[in-house]
């Protein structure tokens, strides 16, 4: 599936949701940071994977089914980044950008006047649109002598876009959970703070090789947002 197709699907869903505004529908915008971990065990035992921050921005459209339960769609863009580092401290930051559409059932409960607590559970589809690699790499032809006459290999800064191949699984499916606090500023305007959790159930690469270990994204996000209520 190409980017245009993904964008058009997400746009259609947003539009459908907006046009079907009946009863109470809230439309809002959330933005914040992500913190992703790639669940993968490399064959190379000298390599360490670590989690890395990124950003998230998404629309938030929820449609109340009753006083406490709503259906929520949150199309948007987010990063699922991670870092690699070997025992010689040569590292690369892998920045992966996805278009994502989570759909959840949201439960909401009033805590005190104007303040609601919400929790949501659902599934998501994401499309991997871009991957870049930044960091350092050793150059075998760039040498210098150490203080004890030993040979040192110089490293160079690298920054390049990853060329996707047939091996990459650019479509990702998974489940999601969300928890948030909403504060009603005005009758039809509220702000929120939310914590999100996304766990992929499909690997980043197709299972092509024998003994191939799968790579799964596990992403936390914290966002702040604002929403407008249509009644």
């Amino acid at each position: 599936m190409n980017i245009k197709k993904s964008l058009s699907i997400i746009a259609s869903i947003c539009l459908t949701c907006i046009l079907n505004v009946k009863a109470q529908t809230n439309i809002g915008l959330d933005a914040g940071i992500t913190y992703n971990k790639l669940r993968f065990k490399p064959v190379n035992s000298n390599l360490t994977l670590s989690s890395k921050q990124g950003y998230i921005i998404n629309l938030n459209i929820d449609h109340q089914l009753n006083k406490w339960i709503a259906v929520e769609a949150s199309p948007g863009m987010l990063q699922k980044n991670y870092s690699l580092k070997n025992t010689n401290n040569i590292y690369q930051d892998i920045n992966n950008t996805y278009l994502q559409l989570p759909i959840s059932i949201k439960f909401e409960r009033k805590l005190i006047s104007r303040l609601n607590l919400s929790a949501a559970l659902g599934g998501y589809y994401a499309y991997w649109i871009k991957s870049t690699i930044n960091g350092i790499a050793p150059n075998v032809f760039e040498l210098s002598s150490g203080s004890e006459g030993d040979e040192l290999i110089k490293v160079e800064g690298i920054k390049s876009q990853y060329p996707f191949s047939q091996r990459d699984n650019r479509s990702e499916f998974g489940w999601t959970a969300k928890i948030g606090l909403n504060y009603r500023i005005l009758n039809d305007l509220s702000c929120s703070i939310k914590g999100h959790y996304y766990r992929s159930l499909t690997g980043q690469q197709k299972q092509i090789d024998e003994l191939q270990a799968s790579r799964y994204n596990e992403t936390l996000a914290a966002t702040i947002g604002i929403a407008y209520s249509f009644k």
Binding site: Y35, T48, S51, N88, N89, I136, L152, K154, G195
Partner: peptide, 30 residues
């Protein structure tokens, strides 16, 4: 875990030397 992780900051990458045998970086542990 999310908020705990957000409190942590990455070690300044400027510390990384130009040489493989000397370069270093700290990492966050999820």
């Amino acid at each position: 875990t999310l908020f705990y992780s957000l409190l942590q900051t990455r070690i300044n990458k400027d510390l990384i030397s130009n040489f493989a045998t000397k370069s270093h970086i700290n990492k966050l542990d999820f």
